[in-house]
Every structure is written in C-alpha cells, then in structure tokens.
Nucleic acid binder design. Structure first.
Length: 431
RNA sequence: UCCUCAGUAGCUCAAUGGUAGAGCAUUCGGCUGUUAACCGAAGGGUUGUAGGUUCGAGUCCUACCUGAGGAGCCA
C-alpha cells in the first residue's frame, strides 16, 4: 500500500510523518493522553496521542477501542527513550478499519490448554511472533547454506508404501485400492537422489503416529535431510557442525530484536562455534557412569540421559558410533567394531537433547539385504532401495535435522509446540 | 500404553464437610508519559459428567470425560 511503511523500517523514517497499518495490541489512557500499543506483523510500536492532537471524538473512540481492532495510524516517528522499542509514533490521525469483538486473550497469564485452543490468535502475541520469525530465519539459513554449498534440493514423497524406519507408528491412509502411509522421513529416497545428483537435500514435514506426550515431540514436524554421495562419517560430522554454526551466526546477525523479546541469553549462542566436541557412544556411557547415572551399554539414551550429557558441554556435542540395536537397519556398520554403527546424533546444550541424527549408510548389497530381512521388512517395498547397491554403490551418508527442536533450543523456550504455527500433538488436531 | 497432577466466573486461581470469593477482562466514571498503568463502581456461577456417603459436598468415595506434566519411542 502506497504511503504506508512497516515497523521494521521505522528507524529510516525518524522525524517523518508516516502511516502504519496493523492492529491494536493494547491501550492505556489518562484522560487527556492515550498510549496505543500497535503491531503490524513486522514489529511492535507505541503510539502516543493527546486529546488536542486527534480531537475529542476520535480520542474517545480510540479510548474504547477493543484490543486487536484493525487500524491505520498516522503520525510522526520520534526516537524516545521512554518508548519500549526506542521509537514511538506521535499520533496525528487514526482510521479504524475494523473494530474487534472482545478479544479472548488478555495480557495476564493463561493456561496452556486455553492458549492452544486459541492458537490462531495466540500467534499474534509478541513471544510467538519472535519464535516464529526465528524459525523462518532458521529455515532460510539452512537453505542458504545448502544451496550455496552445491546441494540440490530434491523433495521426497509424502505418500509412501512402507516405513523408512520400520519400528515407529505410521499414519495410514487409502491410496485408491491399496494402503499408503504418510512419510516419516525422506531418508531412503534421498539415497536414490544422492546417487543421481551427488549432494542433495529434502525439506518437508515428517509425520509420526507416536503417542508421545512430551515437550520435545510433535506429531507433525519439519526436517531438513541432506544426503551426500561418497561421504564418510567424518564428512557428516563436519557438515553438521558447519551447518549449525552457519545458522546460529545468521540468527545472531539478523534476529537480535526477537531474541530480546524472548529474553534469550545470547552469550550461550555466541559460544556455538566449531569445533564441537566429538565423543563416542561408549565414552558417553562412561561419562554417565562417572556422573552416577545407571545405564547399560547397548541401550539408547533416554531423555534424562541426553540432558545429563548435553548439560556437560557448553556447545552442541556430537555423539558417534551407537550400537546397532538402537539405530535403523540402513546404518553402516563400524568396520573396527561390528557391534557399532557409523552413526551420529548431535545433542544441543542446556539439556535440549537431540537435534540432529544421521551417519553413514550401508553400501554393501549383501549386508543390506540381510538387514532388511532381519528387520522383517516387506522385501517388495524395499527392492528399489536395495537396487541402489547394485548400480555403482558408494559410501554415502547424511542426516536429518529437526527444525522445531533446533528452534526450541535456539530460542531457549520450554516447549516445542510454540515453534510451529499450528502444532499437531497427541489429542490436538485443532485449530 | 503406563505413572503423576488438575478441572470452580470469559481468563488465572482461592474457598477446615457448614452463606461460592479475589485479580485480570468487560461496562460506567476519574486521571496529560503510561510500560501487564493506576483509583472508584457495576454486571458476571447448573463448581467437567453420572452416581454414592452425609443433616449438609466445590471439598469425601466410585466410574467416566477432558487437559497438563513425565516415561517409553523418536527429530
């Protein structure tokens, strides 16, 4: 709209008369002067209006304007230390575009359940604004890194005939005359595209019908999955580390205002620099034992174990070479110890736990065939995947990075549900 | 699926087994620099559902429903 500007550009207009279009997030008045908290989707600003500046009629109307009413405000941009954002708008005029009904979300505390029921409105609130803008920048940075390093984006199907990782529960749907399942991961298809294009990644939703009910789980989550032909486990470690550092660096450059809204301690993020500690699963088991945690070698780390590990480091830690029993059938076997896989999980610091999982894949035909059979997987559905080992099979690997887990950690927030606009959780499909 | 906790006004929560209350929000009034403003007044209730115990149940018991936290599983 001509003549209108956005709050994110407000600093360039100091001293000028501008028009903003957005919504009222709050107001206070003192009879002769009123303060209007205003947002436009790019930021928040306070408008100040005197009764003399805007006239009695408008003053009284604005003084009774419900929260979240849509308005256009016109006035002079002023730098003012008393304003929360450093700038405020000296109100000269205001046009009511739509007067809202009584808004259900107040400025006092609310329960989780109430807020989730009103998620379509909750996302307007400043904390959610900050988290979702940081998420968008994470996605943008991930793509920027991969696109800039020779990776080709090739997305993989959502509807699939079989599980990628046989164990987890699948969402089942009808596919004309047969059953299909919603994807859990693009992993297997990535291996095919990597053999065609060398370096690839897919980015999209993953759906898991797990009855998980924790603050680290979503039924529908987004992940980016790079896959690289000729990559070894060591290569995968380097790439993960570089990618995470790249993303954090860009966030620190571009999203300071959002981190300020979240009151995030940026010193913790500034420490996220290579090299990340690299330790083996077996070494981590020893660490747990040293810390007095009861743990049996061969088990997978539970959430409390991951928390103990990730609290022991001041930056993400990469745990390698998990036992075969806790990793999917397609993981490559460690040539130095066949009880182990060439796998890696990256655990975020501050107790946030796993944000990346990956490693080197099985490249040998006979070993893969045996693994498929041992997993009791339907051979017919995996025949195309096994085929990849017949025509120019090479060492290769990749990883999946969970966008919401990464966002949760980077934002320093408590629950993963706030990192996606409309979270799908157990018992929650709406809104 | 299992364990724990909770459900009372639009929201967040109080209320020894004995008259159902506060703050916020709403409406009205006051206030010229507020930062989740403040001051005064008003309206607002089938205490999640169904049974049971009791002279008397928001409170105790049983079942169910809904939600939250955690476990397992995973990104």
């Amino acid at each position: 709209m001509t003549g209108c500007i956005y709050i994110e550009d407000i600093a360039q207009h100091e001293g000028q008369q501008v028009t903003l279009q957005g919504w009222v997030t709050g107001r206070r008045s003192s009879g002769k002067i009123l303060f209007l908290q205003f947002r436009d989707g790019t930021g928040f600003i306070q408008c100040v209006g005197g009764r003399n500046d805007i006239g009695d009629e408008l003053f009284d109307r604005v003084d009774h304007l419900p929260i979240e009413s849509a308005v256009r405000v016109t006035g002079e941009v002023r730098a003012d230390a008393r304003a929360p954002s450093g700038f405020e708008l000296g109100l000269a005029g205001l046009e009511v575009v739509h007067e809202a009904e009584e808004y259900p979300i107040g400025r006092k505390e609310h329960g989780d359940s109430f807020l989730l029921d009103h998620r379509h409105l909750w996302i307007r609130q400043s904390q959610q604004f900050a988290v979702l803008r940081i998420r968008a920048t994470i996605i943008s940075a991930v793509r920027e890194y991969l696109d800039g390093h020779g990776y080709l984006n090739i997305d993989t199907p959502i509807l699939t005939p079989a599980a990628c990782e046989g164990t987890t529960t699948l969402f089942e749907t009808e596919y004309f005359d047969e059953k299909a399942y919603l994807t859990q991961s693009g992993q297997l298809y990535n291996e095919a595209t990597a053999m065609a294009f060398g370096r690839v990644y897919c980015f999209g939703p993953a759906l898991r019908a797990e009855k998980s009910k924790t603050r680290r789980h979503l039924i529908e989550f987004w992940q980016v999955e790079p896959e690289i032909a000729y990559a070894t486990l060591e290569d995968i470690l380097d790439i993960q580390e570089e990618l995470v550092c790249f993303v954090v660096e860009r966030l620190l450059r571009e999203r300071k205002p959002e981190f300020a809204i979240l009151k995030r301690d940026l010193a913790l993020l500034e420490r996220v620099k290579a090299p990340f500690p690299r330790v083996t699963y077996t070494e981590m088991v020893d660490l747990l034992h040293e810390k007095g945690v009861e743990f049996t070698w061969g088990d997978d780390f539970g959430a409390p174990d991951e928390a103990v590990i990730s609290e022991s480091f001041d930056r993400p830690v990469m745990v390698t070479r998990y036992p075969r029993g806790v990793k999917p059938f397609y993981m490559a076997i460690d040539p130095e110890d066949e009880r182990l896989t060439l796998s890696v999980d990256m655990l975020a610091p501050e107790g946030y736990g796993e944000i990346v999982g990956g490693g080197e894949r099985l490249a040998d035909l006979a070993t893969l065939e045996a693994a498929v059979d041992a997993g009791a997987l339907p051979r017919a559905d995996y025949e195309w995947y096994i085929d990849l080992r017949r025509y120019g099979s090479v060492p290769h690997g990749g990883f999946g990075m969970g966008i919401e887990r990464l966002t949760t950690w980077v934002c320093g927030i408590h629950h993963i549900r706030e990192t996606i606009a409309f979270p799908r959780m157990l018992n929650r499909l709406r809104p």
